[in-house]
Design a protein around this nucleic acid. Sequence first.
DNA 1: ACCTCGCGCTAGACCGGTTTAGCAAAGAAC
DNA 2: GTTCTTTGCTAAACCGGTCTAGCGCGAGGT
Lengths: 341, 341
Amino acid sequence: MGRPTIADIAREAGVSKGAVSFALNGRPGVSEATRERILRVAEAMQWRPHSAARALGGARAGAVGLVLARPARTLGVEPFFGQLLSGLQAVLSANQVALQLLVVESTEAEIEVHRRWASEHRVDGFVLVDLQVRDPRIAVLEELGVPSVVLGGPGRHGRLPSVWADDREAMLSIVDYLAALGHRRIAHLAGLPAFQHTQRRIRALRDSARRHGLEAVSVPTDFSDAEGAAATRALLARPERPTAIVYDSDVMAVAGLGVAAEMGVSVPGGLSVVSFDDSVLTRIVHPALTALSRDTFALGEQVARSLLALIDDPSAAEDLRTPTPRLTVRESTGRPLGTVG
Amino acid sequence: MGRPTIADIAREAGVSKGAVSFALNGRPGVSEATRERILRVAEAMQWRPHSAARALGGARAGAVGLVLARPARTLGVEPFFGQLLSGLQAVLSANQVALQLLVVESTEAEIEVHRRWASEHRVDGFVLVDLQVRDPRIAVLEELGVPSVVLGGPGRHGRLPSVWADDREAMLSIVDYLAALGHRRIAHLAGLPAFQHTQRRIRALRDSARRHGLEAVSVPTDFSDAEGAAATRALLARPERPTAIVYDSDVMAVAGLGVAAEMGVSVPGGLSVVSFDDSVLTRIVHPALTALSRDTFALGEQVARSLLALIDDPSAAEDLRTPTPRLTVRESTGRPLGTVG
DNA sequence: ACCTCGCGCTAGACCGGTTTAGCAAAGAAC
DNA sequence: GTTCTTTGCTAAACCGGTCTAGCGCGAGGT
């Protein structure tokens, strides 16, 4: 005999299938004595639910989906996703919910997967990341009616609830700090312009620079180390080069650090470097990078909690703001040369 | 009406459920004309299979499992896993197979998840990584009878097929290269001693050093940047310090580079640095690191292909050797100071 | 004594597919 | 012309759960 089914347990315990189902799911319909007897039998026979059979009865699939639209080979460069995944898992697995992960090449493919998984009843909900400026995924997920949580905000995300951190405030704190050190020309190596958070950071920098009365420029990139390095090279080659550069990702920041070394620009003497993302990367390089620290693991946990709550009660959609990232000052920032303390 | 079922299609096309099933799965039992009519109707109604219903009939679950036993917060530090995941996905998703991912804290928990997923019929097979010296997971998976592929070898892995690269050969090529440059004292910052590949690399270094008649020492670590840095500091503080260090991971290598800078040891003049793993990390630091390059993405693809083949035909278990990693020389290695070319 | 209620349980429909047994009609073999 | 095969299809069982309708029974109310 293969795996025991509830029918086997029912026979063994001398009750009906229905009674077994009630007992195993802790719902009324059987007496306490019978319930215990059934549980003992189930335990003895090492019974486990068959997830497909459960999902078939219109119930939960017991899994949530995360689809990443990125070029296939670039995943794993960003420590961010590893951290996020770990956080998601910590909460999901505690609730016996599995995570279905898929990496695809484009947003169109991602939407197609959303449709497929939803209609195949493979998942109970989705996590949406990399929110774009006019994100086509929002409407599709709303139409599909699958509970979904957006990571990012507070921009437009339709009726889907989001979990977000205030990166505008974060950018302001960076500029305040650099201005206080005496920097007057700040560059910003931004990420993909299509992302909402890229736009928010660019705007925040512009506003803040105006208030402080200093020069600031944002250069969009594709988040890759190659573009980060190339853009840094271009900036440092200008006659009036910036005394500080803010990088939107730690990979670009490290690449920038390499370029500075290559061009003989000392850090932080000749150039201050700030990373908008913190990870082990920022600590293992030399000099260690000043960076915005946020608890990505905790962020993942929060997203998972929000999604599970939404699945339990689809009417309870609610945005949730997480703590604003704090600036961790390390060795890569200082007063620009020529400034007297 | 909700999602269309094959019953709806059958009614619409004027045939029975069975005929629809035959037609949609491309198997004999219906005429070509009927098949096309059914396919057109299914297309028009936007029918999608209900994965749970399929899995229930004793058929495939349409998913494979990957369980990682690591401290929750450390995932994402190693670019290796991102690459591996991408490779796995590329093949799996082309075959409409999903990947169930879970990160757990210990090997015991990992085994428990294997048991649960297998008995819940959630997955059709498993990918096993981080092969240990006497790995308790092997026996469990063999007992469960779930198709599984081991990443790593050629050590003991029972009757489970494995996909592996020859890291013994790889280590030999590193030592040959360093010896040719004139190095006579080589250190090796190894990974966790419990891993099979750690042991193989340590043995390979010892054997090779003996043949070349040079001094070599392996220091075990936990793969973390912290231990990598600490061990490097200890090595460089010795009176007779090594002129070259081989790091088992790129994260440790970068951390070691930082320590060298901090202690005023020039690279590659005072110290040559080699990383056993290649990723964007080794290229963005300065100096760029000489490293063993293997195509981790392709490795993931191969593992996925092997697993799918094994699921299709469980008797076809076969080990598969992938190309030996090749040494990519960059700027972090050179002749030791005091050596005349 | 009768009706009502709630409890504890059973029987069986149901979810959406796959698969098998079987049937009618047409074609082939003798 | 009868028998055997093959083709194309249908009906229904089946997978392993969930869930609803309903039944027998003892307790409580009148």
